[in-house]
Design a protein around this nucleic acid. Structure first.
Lengths: 352, 352
DNA sequence: ACTATACACCAAAACGTTTTGGATGTCAAG
DNA sequence: CTTGACATCCAAAACGTTTTGGTGTATAGT
């Protein structure tokens, strides 16, 4: 059977109280008693029963993370990296990470409510915020602790971390325009996502600076998967006036776009430029390497989790709203650096 | 404050016992009392305190899943899909999923031990088994419930699900040989992983059937990432006698291999054939689409979790060892189906 | 000799639930 | 009027921990 405080108390001839306090290091326990208790506890391999501890302390020491999945073939390199960041930080502070998957919708909120009411978690990490985010509205309403990755529309008096999507996409836009592109298409995210808006605005800003406009026909909403990037790009390439550049709002769609372009026997970077957003590990090793905007996803996961833990511990959380500057990663899919891409070894055409 | 049984008892004028039993549906509670109690519970929005419930029931209704991550830039599409499968099945049966990340090694086992001893989880899902798997050895030793995805070396009297890697890789080998390849290189997984051995055996078997051998110099162990596939392939291409086909033991490395080949301005499928293993979502939409072996990862996640839950509930778990037949997905990276790849639309050379 | 002050300890309550082992009342049968 | 069966209810114990509010015993100060 599991070893309990009671058992240690019996063996040391002390009371349960004393044993508990000895192990916790209180100084109303004698030095000898302390060492005795600790020795016996070690010998028996005592580990406190967390369930009991949590009931008594009235907190679960658990952080909730509910992944908004879409369908069974859910596979997002973005999330696995984020998860690692959150998970490691949580573990570092002795918190558990309770992970759930639930597509956005009616039931999603139920899950949050249930976890709150049954006191299963002490706080939530919210990912992929929506412009109108029912999760955030609910949690704020009841005053339940959470930290979001991403912003929302309207009142934003809550802790979050976000990357400046406007600036990121503006950099992409300016870079593409600098390379001579004028007909730029955008593979947009679902419109209800917060970052969708930002990224579109950023792209529009870049174009506006040069007196250009983003034609509605060139803004194509996808679902963030490689497949949708692929399909939309095929359509774009088959249109009467295909774009010369495709700015995808995430890397997965950008990779799909590259596949589509290559399938049409066109050269990415030369015939059509492609850019992404996220800088997932794969971006660096795709062919050609993907020009994109770097988000330190792992680090963001850690930061978000750290902020939440500070919040839970009642510590000061400043700044409680962090907007990170994105970093443009110019590689070859945009047509810049083509010399590297073509001459390095295998010969072939050199475009200086 | 939170609503408790006590509060309901107070309001209904019944005892805590009766309230508890009424809600649980015991039939030693009068019909009227039952409805009364339920009504009041509903009105107050009662949700049982899971911490208390679990302490009393001496189980955590929680399944542990510890991801063996490597480094901070951990990003494996394989895991996110598996996670979704496990998570959904767990949720369906009212179980929580406790996710942790921990690189293999000394500390990893500590984490398992700690979760077991503190009664944080009722059972584990083990992923990416090693040939000598300390996790499995430990859990078996203490008789703690778990189900593994993957096998181990030696005594295998424990529940697991696995895909027949030998057969899968044999199919790959035979397919490549059928296409005329004789110099086949293998991008192998780290040797300590269980499936590494199986896949190499499968490939060797295929070659042996045709009186061929797998030269040691062509077996290159990687670390399963795209980056390592990329680097190893560059080395292979630069060697005196480059292979005509590269059989990667997972899709990520295969994708890296394709990048490397393309960077050398060679055509994947024509100049060098590439194959993968896993059939991650990305495989279908890479360029060219990746010939690989399909593993129903989401489904495996569900099955593994289901088996574990049955185990925990004391239900019959038969068969408790499942080996799934893999499915060869012939696409274009291997050089088959090249007509589709080249002629579909964009013109260019047709290789019938 | 009396009061402080510190020190070392502990019984009991509490956290919120489920289960155990009755208690009470009613009704029909004997 | 008893007896037994049945239906309905509940006090108390238990799960394993932490905290509260003490008690008792030296030692020091007056």
């Amino acid at each position: 059977m599991a070893v309990t405080l009671k058992e240690i108390a019996r063996r040391t001839g002390k009371s349960i109280t004393t044993v508990s306090r000895a192990l916790a290091g209180y100084d109303d326990v004698g030095a000898e008693t302390k060492t005795l208790v600790r020795r016996v506890a070690d010998e028996l391999g005592y580990t406190p029963n967390l369930l009991a501890q949590r009931l008594q302390k009235r907190r679960s020491d658990t952080i909730g993370l509910i992944l908004p999945t879409f369908g069974p073939r859910f596979s997002d390199p973005f999330f696995s990296e984020f998860l690692a960041g959150v998970g490691n930080m949580a573990a570092e502070h002795g918190y558990d990470l309770l992970v759930s998957t639930q597509p956005p919708g009616e039931r999603e909120l139920q899950v949050y409510r249930q976890k709150v009411q049954s006191r299963q978690v002490d706080g939530f990490v919210i990912v992929r915020t929506r412009r109108q985010d029912a999760r955030i509205r609910y949690l704020r309403e009841i005053g339940f602790p959470f930290v979001a990755f991403g912003r929302i529309e309207g009142d934003m008096d809550f802790p979050f971390v976000d990357v400046d999507g406007i600036q990121g996409m503006r950099m992409i836009g300016e870079h593409l325009i600098g390379l001579g592109h004028r007909r730029i298409a955008c593979l947009a995210p679902p419109a209800d996502l917060s970052f969708a808006e930002h990224r579109l605005i950023g792209l529009r800003q870049a174009l506006a600076t040069y007196g250009l406009e983003l034609a509605d026909s060139l803004v194509r909403p996808g679902d963030l998967t490689q497949k949708s990037g692929y399909q939309i790009t095929l359509q774009l390439l088959d249109s009467v006036q295909p774009p010369t550049a495709i700015a995808a709002c995430n890397d997965l769609m950008a990779l799909g776009a590259m596949s589509a372009i290559q399938e049409r026997r066109l050269i990415v970077g030369r015939d059509v430029a492609v850019t992404g957003f996220d800088d997932i590990p794969m971006a660096e090793h795709s062919h050609p390497p993907l020009t994109t905007v770097h988000q330190p996803i792992y680090q963001i996961g850690k930061t978000v989790c750290d902020m939440l833990i500070r919040l839970l511990k009642g510590l000061d959380v400043t700044p409680h709203q962090v907007i990170l500057a994105p970093k443009l990663m110019v590689r070859q899919s945009c047509g810049a650096n083509m010399h590297r891409f073509t001459t390095e070894k295998g010969g072939g055409v050199t475009i200086a």
